[in-house]
Design a binder for these strands. Structure first.
Length: 496
RNA sequence: GAGGGUGUAGCUCAGUCGGUAGAGCAACGGCCUUUUAAGCCGUGGGUCCAGGGUUCGAGUCCCUGCACCCUCACCA
């Protein structure tokens, strides 16, 4: 510890003073009987009762032979009142020595002060863990309107991300947000379990990566002396399980994509993937609608939320639109069925930049991203995508050149992707071959050939509906978080 | 990758025209037994992101680098 500043030095010296009082500054246990909220929310029944509360010292005011202070635990904040004539002199001396940030335990009686604040009159005070590094001191007041005003809030984003533990200590809304994240995931899981789908785990280290278009992280296995990839998707393994006879499997998993970092992208992120046998993408659309809207209702008590100023309504049914129709509506052009050259001309007229290497499907996708996607604020399913973009999706049952695929959008962002899974091994091999060709042409996100996956399909995979939901983005929107970093405890940062 | 912004005490910030560093909170000492952004008196605290340059003199101007933020590009 070389960055010991004057403030830390003082705290280290306090360890000696505590030792003189025969106090162990790092205790072994504390028998807690109540949480702060138990006391604060049930004053009528708690008044005069003895409680034992533990938490972190948040404020401290000393007035000679007495003092008021607040501590916080996982449920909230509570005031306590220490006075010399109510406790051992030793404990009161400990009270004088403790600092904001110390973990302490108190035993005392519940009462209300002159100003009506519910407070614990301390009989015993115990230091449980000494704070040696000063915390940001956040002061707050409640104004006439009942609004909490914070002063000197710990606000530096870089420090908040790097030292999330401090962020969580001093910014209660951060804790609330992450609890919501967990509740959302639980809601999704509960729903899927209620339908009888099986939660499974598949490899993160993969010899061949696939299931999405992305560049992977590469790692090395020493004993086998071989390259391995961190998965970019779970897809191909989960479908192998459908081949194996499961009717419905899902996985909440971390995927890793070796790409840029911004407000909507973190190199590792959480994806829910779900595969259900004997169903198609129409079924999956209904499932997603129910899955998400049920979870939103359960978590927030309403189908309606606000994201960055936009009201979003999850009440089913959601709007469903064919990609071709949306493009026609917002660009005035019929794009499907056009040649690559024609599409390039149209793109130019729409001021959409197109790379020379783009296929017809890719140009359509580009125009869609620019001209349509930002307009999709309310939950919307966009259906029937160009085949070139979807090497794992089944051809449309009645239309050439497109596949049975949909993506879900809200707040102008994609949040899920699903299709009727391609289960024809001959078609799948051809699609992979096309991908390998694309890779040779310089598309470094094209799929690789996966012979074992083809082999699995050759044994026969039932018709299957598949789905992927980007959990971080879903949580962002549901918690009104402007950046993906706000919904990931430890977002990726360069080393300090 | 490009452009813009930020970086000063533990935290939040100010710092004028280039003249040798400030406030509030926190800390330390004193007084104070119902306070709550407690109060009063007093004290200490700085690698001004890093490295170079210009200058008699740089927190301030110039260059390079680093980190973070924003926008764009890339990216299911």
């Amino acid at each position: 510890m070389e960055d010991v500043n004057a403030l830390m030095k003082v705290r280290l010296e306090k360890l000696d003073k505590l030792s003189e009082l025969d106090v162990n500054p790092f205790a072994y246990k504390f028998d807690r009987t109540h949480f702060a909220a138990d006391v604060v929310n049930n004053f009528e029944s708690m008044q005069g009762k003895q409680v034992a509360i533990a938490g972190r010292l948040y404020t401290k005011r000393l007035q000679g032979k007495a003092g008021f202070a607040h501590l916080t635990d996982s449920t909230g904040k509570i005031q306590f009142y220490a006075r010399l004539d109510q406790m051992d002199e030793k404990d009161f001396n400990v009270y004088k020595l403790i600092d904001i940030g110390d973990i302490i335990g108190i035993v005392g009686e519940v009462f209300k002060t002159r100003t009506e604040e519910i407070t614990v009159l301390v009989k015993k005070l115990e230091l449980l863990a000494k704070n040696l590094r000063p915390l940001p001191v956040v002061k707050e007041i409640v104004d006439e309107a009942g609004e909490v005003k914070r002063f000197d809030e710990f606000a530096d984003k870089e420090m908040r991300y790097r030292q999330r533990y401090v962020d969580l200590i001093v910014n209660p809304e951060v804790r609330e947000l992450f609890i919501k994240r967990t509740r959302i995931v639980q809601g999704l899981r509960d729903y899927l379990n209620s339908k009888g789908y099986l939660e499974v785990e598949t490899p993160i280290l993969q010899p061949i990566y696939g299931g999405a278009a992305a560049r992977p992280f590469v790692t090395h296995h020493n004993a086998l002396d071989m390259e391995l990839y961190l998965r970019i998707a779970d897809e191909l393994y989960l479908k192998r399980l459908i081949v194996g006879g499961f009717d419905g499997v899902y996985e909440f998993g971390k995927d890793f994509r070796n790409e840029g970092i911004d407000r909507f992208h973190n190199p590792e992120f959480t994806m829910l993937e779900l595969y259900i046998a004997y169903h198609d993408y129409v079924f999956m659309m209904e499932l997603v609608e129910e899955l998400i809207s049920t979870t939103v209702k359960k978590t927030f008590g309403s189908y309606k939320i606000t994201y960055q100023g936009n009201d979003i309504d999850f009440t089913p049914p959601w709007s469903r639109k064919r990609m071709a129709d949306l493009l026609k509506e917002h660009t005035g052009h019929e794009l499907f069925g056009k040649s690559r050259d024609e599409l390039q001309t149209i793109a130019k007229s729409l001021h959409v930049e197109v790379d020379k290497g783009f296929s017809a499907g890719k140009i359509i996708d580009e125009i869609f991203s620019e001209k349509v996607e930002p307009l999709l604020i309310q939950p919307t399913f966009v259906t029937d995508y160009p085949i070139e973009l979807s090497p794992l999706a089944k051809k449309h049952r009645s239309e050439a050149g497109i596949v049975e695929r949909f993506e879900g959008f809200m707040a102008g962002k994609e949040f899920c992707n699903a299709f009727s899974e391609l289960n024809d091994p001959i078609d799948q091999r051809q699609r992979f071959e096309q991908q390998v060709e694309n890779k040779k042409q310089g598309d470094d996100e094209a799929h690789e050939m996966d012979d074992d996956y083809i082999r699995a399909l050759e044994y026969g995979m039932p018709p299957t509906a598949g789905l992927g939901i980007g959990i971080d983005r879903l949580v962002m929107i549901l918690t009104d978080a402007p950046s993906i970093r706000d919904v990931i405890f430890f977002p990726h940062m360069r080393p300090e």
